[in-house]
Design a protein around this nucleic acid. Structure first.
Lengths: 334, 334
DNA sequence: CTGAAAGCGCTAACAT
DNA sequence: ATGTTAGCGCTTTCAG
C-alpha cells in the first residue's frame, strides 16, 4: 500500500500539505494542489481510512440499521440510502437487527460503538427507551425513518393519512362495504404502522358516516400469502360481503386480488382492491395503491444525514414524507 | 468515549494486558482476564475499531459487493452473509455496484482500497480482467459467489446442471413440447447465467432425443412481467403449442403461470411450469422449482471468508453449491 | 501558504 | 504473565 509519505516525496512537499490538498481542508496553493493530485494519481494513492479516521475522528462511513434485508420495502429503502451515500464518497455499513435478541443487543451495545461510523440511519425500527438512549449516547447524527420518535430526528410518513387517502378513494367510487386487511384491533403497541393504517381507514369511514363492521376486519401478516388467506375469509364467509378491500400493504393487496380471482370474483368489477406502498409488482398487477416512494425515502434519509455531517442544515431532515394515490386497474365504481 | 487507559487503570494493569485480555491474543492469567473483563464492562468499554485496525491491520469488517440491493435473490444472499458475519462479531460494509459506470469504477479504484475491510465477498458480479486484477491486488481474502472466475475462489452453482434437472423433470412427466423462457440464443458473453441455463435445458432435450424448436425459445428479462409477456407469446402464437415451460428464474415462472391462467389454460393440467431459484413466493404459487438456497449461499460465502481470515482452511471455500428439485403444484404428467 | 511535530487509541515486539 | 515502548498512517495545531 502506498502511503502519504511517498506522495509527499514525489510531489516534493510535506505530508501535511498533501493531506490538506487531498482533503480540501486548509490553504494549499493551486500549484501544490496540482502537484499533489498528479503524484497521488501516479502512485494510485488512496487515503487509509483507518489512519485518517483515527487522526481526524471522521470515517466517511454511515451505519444503517435495518430489521430485514430480504423484504422488498427495506431493501428498496436501503438501495436509496446506498446510492445517495456512495455518490458522496461515503461507505455504508450494515447492521441487520434480526429476531435474535442477542444480535439486536449486540448491535446497540457493541457494534455501533466501535467508532466505525460517523452517523446512523435507523430504518423502521421500533426503538425502546434504552435503545433510543444508546443511539443518543453515540453523540452522532442520527436519522430515523419510520417512527415518529420524539427524541430522534425522524423522517415519517403519515400512515394514518395514507390509509385514509386509500379508503377515501374507495368511498369516492361509491363503495360502502369496505373490508380491511391488516392489523387486528388488539395489535401490539410495539409496531405502530399496522395500527395507524387501521385508524386512518376507520377515520375515513367515520367521516363518511359509515360504522366499520367487525366482520370486515381481517388481520394478516403483510405477506402475499397472508393477504390471500384474509381475502378468502372475507369473501367466502356467509353473511354480508364487501365490495372493496383496503389492504394495509401492496403485498397483501396482491394476495387479495389473487384470492378474489380464485373464488371467481372479477377485479375490479366485483371487488375493488387498494393497497399501500408502491411495490414493484404493483404495476404488473395493475394495482391501485398509495405509493410512499421507499427509494426516495432512503435517499432523503441519506441527504439528511449528510446535511448534518457537513453542517449545512438541510430541510430534508424534517417534514413529512410524500405519498401519492396511484389509480390503476384494481379499483372501480361499485 | 472511554479508552483502554481507563480500563487499565481501573483493573490495575497495563494497557497491553488489557488489550491481550480483550482480544484473546497472548498470555493473560485467568485472574487478570477476570479483572479486565469486569473493568471493561463496568466502564462500558468497546475497542475503537479505528485505533485497533491501524495498530493491528485487522478491521473485523468484510466488504460485500453486490449488483442490486432491491432484487430478491441478492438481498437474500446478503441476508445470509450478514447473519453469519454478525454472529462472529464482524461488521459488513456494502458496495452496491450500480449501472452507473462511474460508481462501479469508484468502488474498485477507491472504495475497496481504503483499508476499511479485511476481506471481500463479491456476489454475482461479472468481473472483467481489470476488476479481477484489482481485487487480487488488494491482497485480501476474496470469495466470489457466481463466477466461476478461474483467478478467484468461487462458490459456484452449476447453472447448467440446475437447468438440466428442471428440464429432466418435465421430460420425466412425459412432456416433449417444452418451451424455454430466458436468454435468447445470441445473448451476451458478459453475464453467463442465462446462457448456461439455456444450454442445460438444451442438453436435457438432446439427451432425450428432442430437437429444440426455435419457436419455443422466448427471451425475457428475469422479471415477473417479462415471464408473463413471454408466456403469452408462447401460448398465443398460432402454430405448435408447448405443453410445458421451463423458465430460467422463478419470477419469470410466476409470470408464466399468471399468463397461462389469463389465457384460460389451467396449470398444471394444460401447461406445466417449472422455475429456478427457490423464490419466497414459490410456495404461495405452488411453483415447482429447482431451489439454489440463496440464503445458504450467503452464509457459506461468509463462512468461507471467515475460514480464510482465521486461517482454518475450510472446505466451504471450495466445491459446488447444492441445489434441489422441489416438486410442487405447477407441473404434472402430460 | 507550507512544514515540523505532536498526537489519535490501540497492538505487538521485546524485555523482564 | 506482564509492562514498556515504538510505531500504525494520517491530521492538525502551531510556527514561520
Amino acid at each position: 500500500m502506498v502511503s502519504i509519505d511517498e506522495v509527499a516525496r514525489l510531489a516534493g512537499l510535506s505530508t501535511a500539505t498533501v493531506s490538506r490538498a487531498l482533503s480540501g481542508r486548509g490553504y494549499v496553493s493551486a500549484a501544490s494542489r496540482e502537484r499533489v493530485t498528479i503524484a497521488a494519481r501516479q502512485l494510485g494513492y488512496v487515503v487509509s481510512s483507518r489512519a485518517s479516521s483515527l487522526a481526524s475522528g471522521r470515517t466517511r462511513n454511515v451505519g444503517v440499521v435495518v430489521p430485514f434485508l430480504d423484504r422488498w420495502f427495506f431493501s428498496t429503502v436501503l438501495s436509496g440510502v446506498s446510492s445517495a451515500l456512495m455518490r458522496q464518497g461515503y461507505d455504508i455499513t450494515l447492521y441487520n437487527i434480526t429476531a435474535d435478541e442477542a444480535v439486536r443487543k449486540d448491535v446497540f451495545d457493541v457494534a455501533l460503538r466501535r467508532q466505525r461510523v460517523d452517523a446512523v440511519i435507523a430504518v423502521a425500527i421500533e426503538l425502546d427507551e434504552e435503545e433510543t438512549e444508546q443511539l443518543l449516547a453515540l453523540d452522532l447524527p442520527v436519522i430515523a425513518i419510520g417512527g415518529p420518535n420524539p427524541r430522534l430526528d425522524t423522517l415519517t410518513v403519515d400512515d394514518f393519512a395514507l390509509a385514509r387517502l386509500a379508503t377515501e378513494h374507495l368511498l369516492a367510487l361509491g363503495h360502502t362495504e369496505i373490508a380491511h386487511i391488516g392489523a387486528n384491533p388488539e395489535f401490539d403497541i410495539d409496531f405502530h404502522i399496522p395500527t395507524n393504517r387501521r385508524l386512518g381507514f376507520e377515520q375515513a369511514l367515520a367521516d363518511a358516516g359509515i360504522t366499520p363492521k367487525s366482520a370486515y376486519l381481517e388481520p394478516a401478516d403483510f405477506t402475499v400469502d397472508g393477504g390471500y388467506r384474509a381475502a378468502k375469509q372475507l369473501l367466502g364467509r356467509p353473511g354480508p360481503r364487501p365490495t372493496a378491500v383496503f389492504a394495509a400493504s401492496d403485498e397483501m393487496a396482491i394476495g387479495a386480488v389473487l384470492a378474489a380471482r380464485d373464488l371467481g370474483y372479477r377485479v375490479p368489477e366485483d371487488l375493488s382492491v387498494v393497497g399501500i406502498d408502491g411495490h414493484e409488482l404493483g404495476e404488473f398487477f395493475r394495482l391501485t395503491t398509495v405509493d410512499q416512494f421507499p427509494l426516495a425515502q432512503g435517499e432523503r434519509a441519506a441527504d439528511a444525514v449528510l446535511a448534518k455531517l457537513e453542517g449545512t442544515d438541510d430541510a430534508a431532515a424534517h417534514g413529512a414524507l410524500p405519498f401519492e394515490l396511484i389509480v390503476r386497474g384494481t379499483t372501480a365504481r361499485r
